Amino acid sequence: MNTVMPPAFTVPERLNASSPPEARGLRRDFVKMMVLSRQSGSWIDTSFSQLPGFLREGDLLVLNNSRTIPAVFKADIERNGFICKRNQEVRLARRLSEKVWEVLVPELNLQKNDQMHFSSRLSAEVINFKPELPFTVVEFSAASARLFEELYSTGEPVRYEYIHHPWSLDYYQTVYANVPGSVEMPSAGRAFSWELLQKLQAAGIRTAFLQLHTGLSYLLDDRWHQHPSHNKEHYSIPAATLSAVKQTKKDGGRVVPVGTTVVRALETAARRKSNLSSISGWTDLYINEATPLRVADGLITGFHEPEASHLDMLSAFLNRNQLITAYQHALKKGYLWHEFGDINFII
């Protein structure tokens, strides 16, 4: 029996948030918020600043404190001692070790042992290239803190076509981010301010942190069609956060991840049979309407495009027809999409 899918929706250009709220004269925690009921599918239109009123004492917010790093660079490509391409764009995709990364290099077929020169102080060597795969594996000439120092001095943040101005990296951070590693901003937490976090704490709503370093989501070339399960990302959940989640569940509170990255990390950890005090590793978990949620009771997130795998994840929280109906309402009410946009709270 074939299932009739709900009608598709499209996001008009005017609803792509092309600038940060601060540049539009708005505090980051005063973006709009649509609160969507998991039980009924009904919604309330409000402001993110009103978040404490939709949570209860004893609830736990889990936030991703991964910090966004510059991920777009220009490099001269050297092959056999000669420069064969100048100012070639290189995008970081995923860190594999202290010196080794997967990168995306559009418009160029690389070869093993090619050298990438980013500056007089930083270079990288191609150690694995397969033309049938989107990513190239490179080893940088620097590691750890020194590598990040060079990356910050030469790169810029990922910026997609709906962002018309090169905003500085500071605009791509959450206020609580402190562990560098994400090549794209874990954007659901961007709307939090320190003032709002303090109000939540005063209301008895707790917070806990984990890290999931986001990878590159858009590959710039239609020939690459990766299934979401191929998007491996590294996560780390400290003992204090695991303990807070367990205690919240025991006490009857609700665990509310801030962002799809946090859902992915928590639900991956819940599927590991482990008694470790902390958990870290790689996740390729793909969550959709058929996935039972073992930890997450709600979700704070942005608004996602119809083809995005993040939207599949939202259907694990809410009937897909109700979800699409709510999104159609958001379109009519002028909610803004993408990393500088508005917030959807599903609870």
Results as ranks from 00 to 15, higher is better:
residue 1 M to E: 06
residue 7 P to M: 07
residue 10 T to G: 00
residue 30 F to L: 12
residue 32 K to L: 10
residue 34 M to C: 08
residue 37 S to L: 03
residue 38 R to P: 01
residue 39 Q to G: 04
residue 42 S to D: 14
residue 43 W to I: 09
residue 44 I to M: 00
residue 53 G to Y: 13
residue 54 F to R: 01
residue 55 L to Y: 03
residue 55 L to A: 04
residue 58 G to Q: 02
residue 59 D to N: 10
residue 60 L to Y: 01
residue 66 S to F: 05
residue 69 I to S: 05
residue 72 V to Y: 00
residue 76 D to Y: 05
residue 76 D to F: 08
residue 83 I to W: 10
residue 84 C to S: 12
residue 84 C to K: 15
residue 99 K to V: 04
residue 100 V to H: 11
residue 102 E to K: 08
residue 104 L to F: 04
residue 105 V to C: 07
residue 107 E to G: 13
residue 108 L to I: 14
residue 111 Q to T: 10
residue 113 N to T: 13
residue 114 D to Y: 09
residue 115 Q to E: 14
residue 120 S to M: 11
residue 126 V to S: 01
residue 133 L to P: 00
residue 134 P to A: 01
residue 134 P to N: 01
residue 135 F to C: 01
residue 136 T to E: 07
residue 148 F to D: 14
residue 148 F to C: 06
residue 151 L to V: 14
residue 158 V to N: 12
residue 160 Y to A: 13
residue 167 W to P: 10
residue 169 L to H: 10
residue 173 Q to W: 08
residue 173 Q to T: 10
residue 176 Y to A: 11
residue 182 S to H: 03
residue 184 E to N: 05
residue 185 M to L: 12
residue 187 S to A: 15
residue 188 A to T: 09
residue 189 G to H: 04
residue 193 S to L: 11
residue 195 E to Y: 12
residue 195 E to H: 11
residue 197 L to R: 13
residue 198 Q to H: 12
residue 199 K to I: 10
residue 199 K to F: 00
residue 199 K to A: 11
residue 205 I to N: 03
residue 205 I to K: 01
residue 206 R to Y: 08
residue 208 A to P: 05
residue 210 L to C: 13
residue 216 L to C: 03
residue 221 D to P: 03
residue 222 D to T: 13
residue 224 W to Q: 04
residue 234 H to Y: 15
residue 235 Y to C: 03
residue 237 I to L: 01
residue 237 I to R: 00
residue 240 A to H: 12
residue 259 G to Y: 05
residue 262 V to Q: 02
residue 266 L to P: 00
residue 273 K to S: 13
residue 276 L to N: 12
residue 277 S to T: 15
residue 281 G to V: 04
residue 281 G to Y: 02
residue 286 Y to F: 15
residue 290 A to F: 05
residue 294 R to S: 12
residue 294 R to F: 08
residue 299 L to P: 03
residue 301 T to M: 08
residue 303 F to E: 06
residue 304 H to A: 06
residue 305 E to A: 15
residue 308 A to V: 01
residue 317 F to C: 05
residue 319 N to E: 15
residue 324 I to P: 05
residue 330 A to C: 06
residue 333 K to E: 15
